[in-house]
């Protein structure tokens, strides 16, 4: 399990740039950034180092930021890896709230999954049971 940084943004011009600048000035290093959006809002989800510090810095700068617990799974870089992992989860009836993938280095990808807290244990069991590696904080940011 790792900590993700989530930031609530109104879709107003320049806010995303402000956000990234604020994190850069605070020496926060990002590994991944995705945006979920509607016509009015954006939720920016970030994998980075020093999440606790990042939340404080952002709140101080007037952003609404929070920490979210998510699962991170290392996937071998080959066709079908993601499908296998999701099928393993599917058999447990675990509910995935959202997910996204990013590349960490040459030969592996990382899949981030937000699982309902009540289902988290079951999900972790199913994933490692299917032979996939669950990552911890230190594995990602180094």
């Amino acid at each position: 399990m790792i900590m993700q940084l989530t930031v609530f943004l109104e879709n107003s011009e320049g806010r995303l740039a402000d956000l990234c600048r604020t994190l850069a000035n605070a020496n926060v290093n990002m590994s991944a950034l995705t945006i979920a959006e509607t016509s009015e809002y954006g939720l920016v989800r970030i994998i980075c180092d020093n999440v606790f510090h990042a939340v404080d810095v952002l709140e101080e700068a007037g952003f609404r930021a929070t920490k979210t617990k998510v699962l991170a799974v290392e996937l071998p870089d080959r066709p079908g890896a993601l499908a296998e992992m999701l099928e393993a989860l599917d058999s447990t009836k675990v509910n995935i709230e959202y997910g996204y993938c990013f590349q960490s280095n040459g030969d592996t990808a990382i899949d981030v999954l937000k699982i309902n807290p009540a289902d988290r244990d079951a999900a972790e069991k199913a994933i490692s049971g299917a032979g996939f590696k669950l990552l911890h904080w230190d594995d990602i940011v180094s």
């Binding site: 609530f8 979920a36 959006e37 509607t38 809002y41 939720l43 929070t66």
Partner: peptide, 16 residues
């Protein structure tokens, strides 16, 4: 309305 810090806004669906 401003969102409070302790509101779990991590999902679009919870905001909506």
């Amino acid at each position: 309305a401003e969102v409070n810090p302790d509101f779990d806004f991590d999902q679009i669906s919870s905001i909506e």
